[in-house]
Each structure stands twice: as C-alpha cells, then as structure tokens.
C-alpha cells in the first residue's frame, strides 16, 4: 500500500507543478465572472444560465486535466527511461499502475474540490444559499466518472502507440458516451438488423458516464438524489474502474518496455 501511495504522491505533486490546472481554473473563473456580469432584463436573480455555464467549464476542465494527466503517465516514464529504475525497486508492475491511477484520480479530486468551491461561492453571491449536500453529490459523482475515464485512459496508454492518439481517442469516446450514450437504445430500436443488435450491445457494454452528470439537478434546483442510488452508481463506477485496471494489469505485465 505504501508503494502505491508513494507513486500516487509523485503524480499529485506533478499536477500542482504543472500549469494546466492553474490555466484552466483561471479561464473558468474569468469566463464565469464575465458572464455573471451580464444583465438580463434588469433581473439580478437569474442564475440558471450562470450555473450551467460554470458547470460546463468545470466539466471540460476536469476532463482535460484527467485525460491529459493519465495519458502521459506510462509513456513519459518509458520515454524518460525512469520506468527501469522504478521497476528495479521492489515494486510490482500492477502496483505502479495502481499508484498511477490513484495519483491521477486523487489529483482530479483535488482539482474538483477547488472548482466546486469556486462554483458554490459564485452561486452563493446570487442565491444566498450554499447547498453543501447537493454540491457533495454532484462533486462525488463527477469524481467517480473521472475515475472511470482515468482507468480507461491508462488502459489506452498501454494499448495505443502515442499519448496524442490516446488523448484524442479517449476524448472522443468520453464525449461520445456523455452526449449519445443514454440514447443508444432509442437509436437501436429504429435500426435494422444486424446494426440494431450491434448498437444495443454497445449500449450495454459502454460505461454510462452520463449517470454521473448531475448538472441538470444543480442548475434546475432538483432535490437531492436518494443516497442509495448514489451508492449504486458508485459501485457501478468501481466495477468499470476494476475492469479497466485489470485489463491494464494484464497487458502491462507482458509489455516490453524498451
């Protein structure tokens, strides 16, 4: 466990040394504050559009941080040849991968805490409320979604030849699932065979990242989701994380590193 945490610690330190997070946070903050200053019909209580826009920026930023951080972990170690001294130590390959995953996931979690704190503060200035439980649910689910994406990207970084290809493909996959994933069954029933069965199979196989998107609930002030469903969604996320990590372990174990 200590070995995994040591690897994870290095990844977290890498996040705050790099400028990606700061740039994305400043951009998000600037754009949100600029938009917050727009006047619509002299009504200062209008806040839905601001929530929606700020959350969209947070989702984009978090996805960029998660994908780019995870995608460069293994290739960078191989390129810099630091993977050899690392594996020369008494640490198994699966521990390296788990450490990398834990580091990326925790780093994404830290970034989310900062983003959601900013979001809550901005909205509190308009609405005069700070619904902690709602923000916790939204942030927690968001973090679980990033866990699946990070595990997927780590697997991609072992399978795909370059980090650029991995980043591009994973962005397309993640955004595709987020936008279309939940409607694949609707699309499938209108198709002829065998396309229908293929799309339906895809619908059941893909991780439904859209489960974890609670933005609409925050924007439109819906009540809290029942905690048992949050728990079930968390288990769903962990199952996919486990599948992707096990796939990564299996491939990385046999991977030639030179």
């Amino acid at each position: 466990m200590n070995k995994i945490l040591a690897v994870a610690g290095v990844v977290i330190r890498e996040l705050y040394r790099r400028k990606d997070f700061y740039v994305l946070f400043i951009l998000t903050a600037l754009m949100t504050l600029l938009l917050g200053g727009v006047n619509f019909f002299n009504d200062e209580q209008i806040v839905g559009y601001l929530k929606e826009f700020c959350l969209l920026l947070i989702w984009i930023s978090a996805l960029v941080i998660a994908v780019t951080t995870a995608a460069r972990q293994i290739p960078a170690e191989r390129e810099n040849r630091t993977i050899f001294p690392l594996l020369a130590k008494p640490i198994a390959r699966w521990q390296v991968l788990t450490g990398k995953f834990a580091g990326c996931w925790l780093a994404a979690g830290v970034a989310l805490v900062v983003f959601y704190a900013f979001f809550g503060t901005v909205i509190a200035t308009r609405e005069r409320t700070f619904p902690v439980a709602d923000y916790f649910q939204a942030g927690w689910m968001h973090w679980q979604m990033l866990g699946i994406v990070i595990a997927m990207v780590l697997l991609g970084s072992i399978v795909l030849s370059t980090p650029a290809a991995n980043v591009t493909i994973m962005f397309i996959v993640a955004l595709g699932i987020l936008f279309v994933g939940r409607y694949l069954n609707t699309v499938a029933v209108r198709m002829d065979e065998p396309s229908s069965s293929i799309v339906y199979t895809l619908y059941y196989v893909i991780p439904h990242l859209e489960f974890f998107d609670l933005r609409k609930r925050l924007v439109h002030d819906w009540p809290l989701v029942e905690w048992k469903y949050i728990g079930l969604a968390t288990l769903y996320a962990w199952a996919y994380i486990a599948v992707f990590l096990l796939g990564s372990f299996a491939l990385f174990r046999r991977k030639a590193l030179n």
Binding site: M141, R182, N185, V189, Y203, Y204, H208, E210, F211, D213, L214, K216, R217, H220, W222, V225, E226, Y229, L232, A233
Partner: peptide, 14 residues
C-alpha cells in the same frame, strides 16, 4: 423505461 439502464438513469436525472 426500456431497460434497467434507462430506469436507473431516471433516478439520477430529472
């Protein structure tokens, strides 16, 4: 809902 995924999603989305 057509399937469990759609049914489960309805507990999470408006």
């Amino acid at each position: 809902p057509r399937d469990w995924i759609e049914a489960f999603g309805r507990h999470l989305h408006p």
